[in-house]
Design a binder for these strands. Structure first.
Lengths: 157, 157
DNA sequence: TCGGGTCTCATACTTTCGGGTGATTTTTAT
DNA sequence: ATAAAAATCACCCGAAAGTATGAGACCCGA
């Protein structure tokens, strides 16, 4: 499976590097190093090289540990904005999915379910499902209420 | 300055370790290793040891994972206006009567025709008539469109 | 007083919405 | 890999919305 290589590519890469460097050293061994330098210097060079390799490897492996999330938001809505960005926090709070939000947005334009279906190249039934789930999540009963609440919560422009 | 030693203690520790291991290897060199194993295995062992050392060093030196800071502040106030004044000109332009505007306003709150009827102490049929006339005047087909257009025209808050 | 506009209500009919359920596929995350 | 979530679609049914038409009551200006 290609999956294996993807997940272990660093390990494999390391193995390959190790082998390559060893081969290189073996080749150099009889040409220059042993002749020109002492054995200790040779060992020291290898130690430094592989220490560097170890550091590089560690940095690669440890990278995904960092995670910074800074959300600071104070919204006094009621006003438009050109490039409108829905309130992510509200979306998460109500568990509204991307598709559901799209449906809500089109609802607020005054489109019927059939029209929304056509716009999104989906079936009418799918739109019904999405809107139903949406109403459930927004705790409303009708599309007009959903639009009204959506605007109040900053989900819509 | 003791500060220097504090800040570089890891580096110094590494140097000391390096020296110590080299000395150890030098000592072992003539005792067992060279005798019992091939040169390549010896080099490989050193490579592995110092790779491990490099990894350990990197893990120690690299700054601890970034703190996760989550500041959330939710203030979704939307108090548009108490005494909202609809655009008179627009009302005249579209020939919208008082009752029709009232119905439109309640529509925008998400109320059903039946609920609007109850609020205004009218029959459901009357609301239907008003809303039908309203849609005609606003040139829309659905209540959601009426609300959308109403807001755009300044008929609603 | 007469016509026009608004407001009211009704009946009959069609269309759209929304709820409920279940199934399949795709995506995502673990 | 596999479990969970999201997305897709279908069918049924009842409720709500919307259309069409007609009609009586009221007010106001011509």
């Amino acid at each position: 499976m290609g999956n294996f290589f993807l997940k272990n590519k660093l390990i494999i890469l390391y193995g390959a590097s190790l082998a390559a460097i060893l081969i290189l050293l073996k080749w150099l061994e009889f040409k220059y190093v042993i002749i020109d330098h002492s054995f200790e210097v040779y060992i020291g060079a290898i130690a430094l090289i592989f220490t560097g390799l170890g550091i590089w490897l560690a940095l690669k492996l440890v990278k995904p540990k960092t995670e910074t999330i800074i959300i600071e938001r104070e919204v006094y809505l009621s006003k438009p904005a050109e490039g409108f960005i829905p309130d992510e926090k509200a979306l998460l709070k109500f568990g509204i999915s991307k598709r559901e939000w799209e449906v809500l947005a089109l609802m607020s334009e005054g489109l019927s379910n059939q029209e929304i279906a056509s716009h999104l190249f989906l079936s009418l039934n799918t739109i019904k499902t999405h809107s139903s789930n949406l109403f459930e999540k927004l705790e409303v009963k009708r599309r007009t209420q959903a639009v009204e609440k959506g605007k109040r919560l900053g989900l819509l422009a």
